[in-house]
C-alpha cells in the first residue's frame, strides 16, 4: 500500500543522505521525495512517498525515528490530510491545437506559465491521479517535456 511519510529533520549537511541511505541499505522503496525548509530555519521537512505492507511501513517509521537527526515522523495514512504534487508540462500548441490545449488546461485548473509560438508550459497541481489524468489527455496532443515534484502533504486543521 502507498504511504506518504512526513519527516522533520535537523537541517544539517548529510542528513538527506542518511535518510536515502537508510532506504537503499534496507531495501525500502522511495516513490518520490521532496525536501524544504520549514518555519524554523534549522528544521527541514522531508515528505516521502513509499509503499509496502504494514510490517515494512512500521520498520520504515521506526528506522527513521532511530536516525539521530530525525525530529518527528508522521505517517499521513494515520491522519486526515491534504496531499499535492505539481507538474510542469511543455506541450505542443500549434495553430490547430492551441485552443484545445487551453480548454484542457482550464478544465484541470492549470496555468500557462510560458508561451512560445509552438508550445505552452503548463503548471498543474493536484493529486497524483489528477496529474496522471491531464498527462494522459495531453499525450496525444504532444508533450515535449515534463517535470514533476514529489508529493507533499499536510494534516488538516482540527474541525472543532
Amino acid at each position: 500500500m502507498k504511504h506518504t511519510i512526513s519527516v522533520l529533520l535537523q537541517n544539517k549537511p548529510g542528513v538527506l543522505s542518511r535518510v536515502t541511505g537508510l532506504f537503499s541499505g534496507r531495501g525500502f522503496n522511495i516513490d518520490s521525495l521532496a525536501v524544504a525548509e520549514t518555519l524554523e530555519k534549522d528544521v527541514s521537512c522531508l515528505t516521502l512517498v513509499t509503499h509496502g505492507d504494514e510490517a515494512i511501513i512500521e520498520q520504515i517509521t521506526k528506522q527513521l525515528h532511530k536516525l539521530i537527526d530525525v525530529i518527528k515522523v508522521t505517517d499521513m495514512a494515520e491522519h486526515d490530510h491534504v496531499e499535492r504534487e505539481m507538474a510542469l508540462i511543455r506541450v505542443k500548441a500549434e495553430a490547430g491545437t492551441r485552443a484545445e490545449v487551453l480548454r484542457v488546461i482550464d478544465i484541470f485548473r492549470g496555468k500557462v506559465v510560458d508561451v512560445s509560438p509552438k508550445s505552452y508550459v503548463v503548471e498543474v497541481t493536484g493529486s497524483k491521479t489528477k496529474l496522471q489524468a491531464i498527462i494522459d489527455i495531453m499525450r496525444p496532443i504532444g508533450i515535449q517535456e515534463i517535470v514533476r515534484t514529489g508529493g507533499i502533504a499536510i494534516t488538516r486543521g482540527k474541525k472543532f
Binding site: 549537511p13 548529510g14 543522505s17 542518511r18 541511505g21 537508510l22 541499505g25 539521530i68
Partner: peptide, 14 residues
C-alpha cells in the same frame, strides 16, 4: 569517511 561509515555507525560527525 563520514559518508563511508554512515550505514555502520550509530551516528557520525565531521
Amino acid at each position: 569517511i563520514v559518508g563511508i561509515t554512515r550505514p555502520v555507525t550509530k551516528h557520525n560527525y565531521l
